[in-house]
Lab assay of single mutants.
Amino acid sequence: NRHQFAPGTFSGVLQCLVCDKTLLGKESLQCSNCNANVHKGCKDAAPACT
């Protein structure tokens, strides 16, 4: 399954699913299917969408 990433819209601090570093809103993407949160630069390394 493929992620459907869109710019993240969340408040607070989240961790990137891929690199475990802190996500800030402006550099984040969120999958509309599984709600995975990743950095824009990490999206290609994200595991399959669940």
Rank of each mutant, 00 (worst) to 15 (best):
residue 38 V to D: 00
residue 50 T to H: 02
residue 27 E to N: 02
residue 27 E to M: 03
residue 32 S to G: 11
residue 41 G to A: 11
residue 1 N to S: 10
residue 28 S to D: 15
residue 23 L to C: 10
residue 14 L to S: 11
residue 31 C to Y: 00
residue 49 C to K: 07
residue 28 S to R: 04
residue 26 K to H: 03
residue 4 Q to R: 13
residue 44 D to R: 09
residue 2 R to K: 15
residue 10 F to D: 15
residue 36 A to I: 13
residue 42 C to E: 07
residue 30 Q to S: 10
residue 6 A to W: 02
residue 34 C to S: 01
residue 10 F to K: 15
residue 36 A to K: 15
residue 38 V to F: 14
residue 37 N to S: 08
residue 30 Q to M: 06
residue 9 T to E: 13
residue 31 C to Q: 01
residue 13 V to D: 15
residue 7 P to F: 04
residue 11 S to Q: 14
residue 9 T to P: 01
residue 32 S to E: 12
residue 21 K to L: 11
residue 7 P to M: 12
residue 8 G to N: 06
residue 33 N to G: 12
residue 49 C to G: 04
residue 7 P to K: 04
residue 7 P to N: 04
residue 1 N to P: 02
residue 28 S to Q: 08
residue 23 L to K: 05
residue 33 N to F: 05
residue 26 K to Y: 06
residue 47 P to V: 13
residue 45 A to D: 14
residue 22 T to D: 15
residue 43 K to M: 07
residue 44 D to Q: 07
residue 14 L to G: 10
residue 27 E to F: 03
residue 42 C to I: 01
residue 50 T to I: 11
residue 37 N to W: 05
residue 11 S to F: 05
residue 34 C to V: 01
residue 10 F to L: 10
residue 47 P to W: 09
residue 28 S to C: 08
residue 16 C to Y: 00
residue 13 V to M: 14
residue 12 G to H: 06
residue 46 A to G: 13
residue 19 C to L: 00
residue 32 S to K: 14
residue 39 H to Y: 00
residue 14 L to V: 14
residue 12 G to M: 07
residue 34 C to F: 01
residue 46 A to N: 07
residue 16 C to K: 01
residue 26 K to Q: 14
residue 28 S to H: 12
residue 45 A to E: 15
residue 24 L to T: 15
residue 13 V to K: 15
residue 16 C to N: 00
residue 46 A to V: 14
residue 46 A to E: 03
residue 47 P to N: 11
residue 49 C to Y: 03
residue 16 C to Q: 01
residue 31 C to F: 01
residue 24 L to A: 12
residue 23 L to Q: 05
residue 17 L to M: 11
residue 26 K to R: 08
residue 42 C to S: 02
residue 35 N to A: 09
residue 31 C to M: 00
residue 24 L to W: 02
residue 22 T to F: 04
residue 12 G to I: 03
residue 37 N to F: 08
residue 30 Q to V: 07
residue 23 L to A: 13
residue 1 N to L: 03
residue 32 S to Y: 08
residue 6 A to F: 10
residue 32 S to W: 04
residue 29 L to P: 01
residue 26 K to A: 14
residue 47 P to L: 10
residue 20 D to I: 03
residue 38 V to P: 01
residue 11 S to L: 05
residue 16 C to P: 02
residue 43 K to V: 11
residue 44 D to Y: 07
residue 36 A to H: 11
residue 31 C to L: 01
residue 34 C to I: 02
residue 14 L to Y: 11
residue 19 C to N: 00
residue 47 P to R: 07
residue 50 T to Y: 00
residue 43 K to N: 09
residue 41 G to W: 08
residue 50 T to R: 14
residue 33 N to I: 10
residue 27 E to D: 06
residue 23 L to Y: 11
residue 39 H to Q: 02
residue 7 P to I: 05
residue 36 A to S: 08
residue 38 V to T: 06
residue 28 S to A: 13
residue 10 F to Q: 14
residue 10 F to W: 12
residue 33 N to H: 09
residue 31 C to D: 07
residue 18 V to D: 04
residue 15 Q to C: 06
residue 5 F to K: 02
residue 27 E to G: 02
residue 29 L to Y: 07
residue 11 S to H: 13
residue 47 P to F: 11
residue 50 T to G: 06
residue 43 K to S: 09
residue 6 A to Q: 15
residue 6 A to M: 14
residue 4 Q to I: 15
residue 5 F to I: 03
residue 1 N to R: 06
residue 3 H to W: 00
residue 10 F to N: 11
residue 18 V to H: 04
residue 19 C to S: 00
residue 4 Q to V: 04
residue 45 A to S: 09
residue 31 C to R: 01
residue 5 F to G: 03
residue 10 F to H: 13
residue 13 V to F: 05
residue 24 L to V: 13
residue 23 L to R: 01
residue 28 S to W: 03
residue 22 T to E: 13
residue 18 V to Y: 04
residue 6 A to K: 15
residue 35 N to L: 05
residue 33 N to C: 05
residue 29 L to D: 11
residue 20 D to P: 02
residue 38 V to K: 02
residue 23 L to H: 08
residue 34 C to G: 01
residue 49 C to F: 02
residue 25 G to P: 13
residue 5 F to T: 04
residue 7 P to D: 04
residue 43 K to P: 04
residue 13 V to T: 15
residue 44 D to A: 08
residue 34 C to L: 00
residue 3 H to G: 03
residue 28 S to N: 08
residue 22 T to H: 06
residue 35 N to G: 10
residue 17 L to A: 12
residue 12 G to Q: 03
residue 22 T to G: 12
residue 41 G to N: 10
residue 19 C to T: 00
residue 47 P to K: 10
residue 5 F to C: 01
residue 24 L to G: 13
residue 17 L to Y: 12
residue 25 G to Q: 12
residue 33 N to M: 10
residue 11 S to Y: 03
residue 11 S to D: 15
residue 42 C to N: 01
residue 17 L to S: 08
residue 15 Q to V: 10
residue 33 N to Q: 13
residue 12 G to F: 02
residue 43 K to C: 12
residue 48 A to Y: 09
residue 10 F to A: 12
residue 1 N to K: 09
residue 34 C to Q: 01
residue 4 Q to M: 09
residue 21 K to Y: 06
residue 8 G to V: 05
residue 27 E to P: 00
residue 7 P to G: 04
residue 15 Q to P: 06
residue 42 C to Q: 00
residue 6 A to V: 14
residue 43 K to L: 10
residue 17 L to P: 07
residue 31 C to W: 00
residue 2 R to W: 03
residue 49 C to H: 02
residue 28 S to T: 07
residue 1 N to A: 05
residue 30 Q to P: 03
residue 48 A to G: 12
residue 22 T to L: 04
residue 7 P to T: 10
residue 26 K to W: 04
residue 5 F to S: 03
residue 14 L to T: 11
residue 26 K to E: 14
residue 34 C to M: 00
residue 3 H to A: 03
residue 8 G to R: 03
residue 5 F to Q: 05
residue 22 T to R: 10
residue 47 P to E: 10
residue 33 N to K: 10
residue 35 N to C: 08
residue 12 G to Y: 02
residue 17 L to H: 04
residue 4 Q to W: 03
residue 22 T to P: 13
residue 7 P to L: 06
residue 21 K to N: 06
residue 48 A to C: 07
residue 1 N to C: 05
residue 30 Q to Y: 05
residue 3 H to T: 04
residue 29 L to W: 02
residue 24 L to M: 07
residue 27 E to R: 00
residue 18 V to P: 01
residue 5 F to L: 05
residue 13 V to W: 09
residue 20 D to E: 10
residue 7 P to C: 04
residue 35 N to D: 12
residue 40 K to W: 07
residue 4 Q to N: 15
residue 15 Q to G: 06
residue 12 G to L: 04
residue 1 N to E: 07
residue 41 G to M: 13
residue 8 G to H: 09
residue 11 S to C: 05
residue 8 G to K: 06
residue 2 R to P: 05
residue 18 V to S: 05
residue 35 N to F: 08
residue 45 A to P: 06
residue 21 K to A: 05
residue 25 G to A: 13
residue 45 A to F: 13
residue 19 C to Y: 00
residue 35 N to I: 02
residue 39 H to D: 05
residue 39 H to F: 01
residue 26 K to P: 12
residue 7 P to R: 03
residue 29 L to H: 04
residue 11 S to W: 03
residue 35 N to Q: 04
residue 8 G to S: 12
residue 6 A to G: 13
residue 36 A to F: 06
residue 26 K to N: 15
residue 44 D to V: 09
residue 2 R to I: 15
residue 40 K to I: 12
residue 48 A to R: 09
residue 11 S to M: 09
residue 41 G to S: 11
residue 35 N to R: 10
residue 41 G to C: 10
residue 33 N to Y: 11
residue 18 V to L: 04
residue 25 G to T: 11
residue 22 T to Y: 07
residue 11 S to T: 13
residue 38 V to M: 07
residue 6 A to N: 15
residue 47 P to A: 09
residue 35 N to M: 06
residue 20 D to S: 08
residue 40 K to H: 11
residue 50 T to D: 13
residue 16 C to W: 00
residue 40 K to F: 14
residue 11 S to K: 12
residue 17 L to N: 08
residue 14 L to Q: 07
residue 11 S to R: 06
residue 38 V to G: 01
residue 42 C to R: 02
residue 11 S to V: 07
residue 36 A to R: 14
residue 49 C to I: 04
